[in-house]
Design a binder for these strands. Sequence first.
DNA 1: CCCAAAATCCAACGTCTGATGGATATTGCG
DNA 2: CGCAATATCCATCAGACGTTGGATTTTGGG
Lengths: 217, 217
Amino acid sequence: MERMTTPRRGPGRPRRADQRATPDVIIEAAAGLFARRGFDAVGMREVAAACGVDVATVHHHMGTKAALYECCFARVFAAESEALTRAVATAREGLAAGPGPAMAALHELVDVFIDFLEDRPEVTGLWLRRWLEPDRHAELDQRYSEPLYRAVEQVLAEADAAGVLSEPQPHLAVRSLVWSVHAHVVGLLSGANGARQRREFRAFAHRWLDRMYPPPA
Amino acid sequence: MERMTTPRRGPGRPRRADQRATPDVIIEAAAGLFARRGFDAVGMREVAAACGVDVATVHHHMGTKAALYECCFARVFAAESEALTRAVATAREGLAAGPGPAMAALHELVDVFIDFLEDRPEVTGLWLRRWLEPDRHAELDQRYSEPLYRAVEQVLAEADAAGVLSEPQPHLAVRSLVWSVHAHVVGLLSGANGARQRREFRAFAHRWLDRMYPPPA
DNA sequence: CCCAAAATCCAACGTCTGATGGATATTGCG
DNA sequence: CGCAATATCCATCAGACGTTGGATTTTGGG
């Protein structure tokens, strides 16, 4: 048979060591597509084409389409959890050293969060879609997202109890800033002049922190 | 033939005066479905079933599915524009009366915005999906959404120029609060205990305004 | 009363979707 | 080498999708 069209990945080639494993390639490509266009707008054939394999291969590794979607969510949220729990722990340590270092620790936490999201904009796409379809990812929320945000809110509550800062509704404040950062990333995805936008938004985020958490009188 | 199953709306019944016109029924049902689940997840048969008509009737009145979607967006954004341009004009009038009335006018504007979104939660669903699929609604954005937000930002810029308040990036501040309100509405859609959530968030929004726009030194 | 226009439903078309069975090729191990 | 396990592709299925043509019924004006 004539199969001269790109025989780079012939039929049947398991365990190649030089490249990444096929499931990883599939998950990354699918996560990007799902983040950009949503679950229903992305077809399995499109995912397969994006990583240069057949549809049956995607099904062989990932099972059903919903399983692939959940796999993308788990990977993305795990990465976010890994990147932020460290920064949250650092911020909690800074709280013990008084108001000055406490605010510095919170600023550092904000920087880590912005850095992470600007580096992986697809997280924002999946994160927002999670909010729009809450019943679809309830289980993943409980495993990844909610503990992380609870930890951040707990840091703020501890800071409030220690008299370092004051905000009666720390979870609303956290949510406000978190959504602002996601909005910023969404704007980056579609708009031009990214460098200036990033600089201005980062300055705004720190100004937001300084104003929303003034030193307690 | 036997057509005993719910002959409430038999074949061919134009111009009934007691109920609303059919296109309005279709647009409202479709807007709710699109806001909750997105464009691709909602089928035309589902829209038809939601308002008790046949698929062909939906197509007869609305044309293609994309046209129906744009029609829902136009109606929702027009309602938002109508509700807010009035409040924006009122806020602008308040600016001429000094720092005190200016801040009161901004608080009033925030209240109107929260009232509108809490009354029509489906606006948030469509609004967020607009951000996630920017190329699909670029034209509607230019007609409805962008002029509205530019007007709000202009009010803030005028207030800044008049020395009433100070914020170097008013559009970022507006976007931060707008996204926070939408986040609040999304939380209302899925969570319980709505009354308390509304009270707490409204207090937070006004606190946000007081802290983000302190009287200029 | 009659007739054109409008509105509604039924049945169907072609296409695309997610998912599968089976054939074939590659790997790693004994 | 030989063989089991794995991986990949091709062809295909059943169903849902958006959309349409045509028949039927109601409306409103002359």
